[in-house]
């Protein structure tokens, strides 16, 4: 194999669709838009679980919200036929993530769980990943955020508190995934069982619109949901191969 072939081979290792097939897990979230009511429980659950700072009115006014999962809302039609749809938008944990190629220091990369990892202490804050992300789910720490005492006591000790100048985003609650793996190891199991781990948003969703699991396991709930004819990816045309699968909203034929 000559140099060019070797080079191309290693390049393809990253670029070929399906390189992640060899990974241990392929964590996937499904979002049933027909069930989502837009209530925002997931947003607060995520804030609570992941030490997401309270940024304050002024900073929010400047467009610096820090919610790893947000509810986007889209109106259609005009009064009296106006309709509103909600869509929870979070890091799609793309298998071909644009953010991963651009980070100059590899602070974001694809890990063995098929997740798009974000390593805060490696990040130098070029923010290029946020530019490259078509879903705009990467949030930047414009300041060192603080919690008015004693609110800091609610901080989750399993999650790093990010400092200024660092990018952050949804991790699919990696601390929970790792804990589940830890428990699996304790039980002498090689793999985590379906349903054993749920990110905070999935756990709390009152209408059970969100489900989470490993799509490599054909019997998992998410694998079944992915076979639903309603399943689709948001911005499929960007070919980012997301791990978040949305199920289409059903529009009843009212007349």
């Amino acid at each position: 194999m000559n140099f060019i072939d070797r080079f191309m081979a290693s390049w393809r290792k990253y670029r070929k669709p399906g390189y992640y097939e060899e990974f241990d897990y392929a964590w996937t979230m499904t979002v049933d838009l027909d069930r989502c009511t837009g209530c925002g429980a997931c947003v607060t659950a995520c804030q609570a679980e992941n030490n997401i700072p309270i940024v304050g009115e002024k900073e929010l006014g400047r467009g610096r919200e820090m919610q790893w999962i947000r509810i986007e809302r889209y109106w259609e039609g005009e009064y009296p036929n106006a309709k509103l749809s909600f869509i929870p938008m979070l890091c799609q944990q793309c298998d071909a993530a644009p953010c991963e190629t651009v980070c100059p220091v590899s602070a974001t990369y694809h890990n063995q769980d098929g997740l798009n990892a974000q390593i805060y202490n490696r990040c130098i804050g070029t923010r290029s990943c946020a530019v490259y992300c078509p879903y705009e789910v990467r949030y930047f720490n414009y300041y060192d955020h603080h919690w008015d005492a004693p609110l800091e006591q609610q901080l989750n000790p399993d999650v790093t508190v990010r400092e200024k100048g660092v990018m952050e985003k949804c991790t699919f609650c990696v601390q929970r995934i790792r804990q589940a793996k830890d428990h699996a190891k304790d039980d002498g199991r090689r793999r985590v069982k379906d349903g054993e781990v749920q990110p905070a948003c999935v756990q709390t969703c009152p209408s059970e619109a969100l489900t989470f699991g490993d799509r490599k396991d054909a019997n998992s709930v998410v694998a079944k949901k992915m076979n639903d004819p309603r399943a689709y990816h948001v911005l499929e045309e960007t070919n980012t191969l997301p791990s978040v699968v949305y199920l289409k909203k059903v529009r009843a034929n009212a007349d």
């Binding site: 209530c39 925002g40 429980a41 607060t44 659950a45 005492a149 609110l151 609610q154």
Partner: peptide, 30 residues
């Protein structure tokens, strides 16, 4: 550290709304 729904409770079956999640901040409210 975190409030979640009690899966055994028949009212919410492990689920919780945003306000319930934020209950932690009544405890640690400055």
């Amino acid at each position: 550290k975190k409030i979640e729904g009690n899966p055994l409770h028949p009212v919410n079956q492990g689920r919780l709304c945003a306000l319930g999640q934020a209950g932690l901040q009544t405890l640690y409210n400055p």
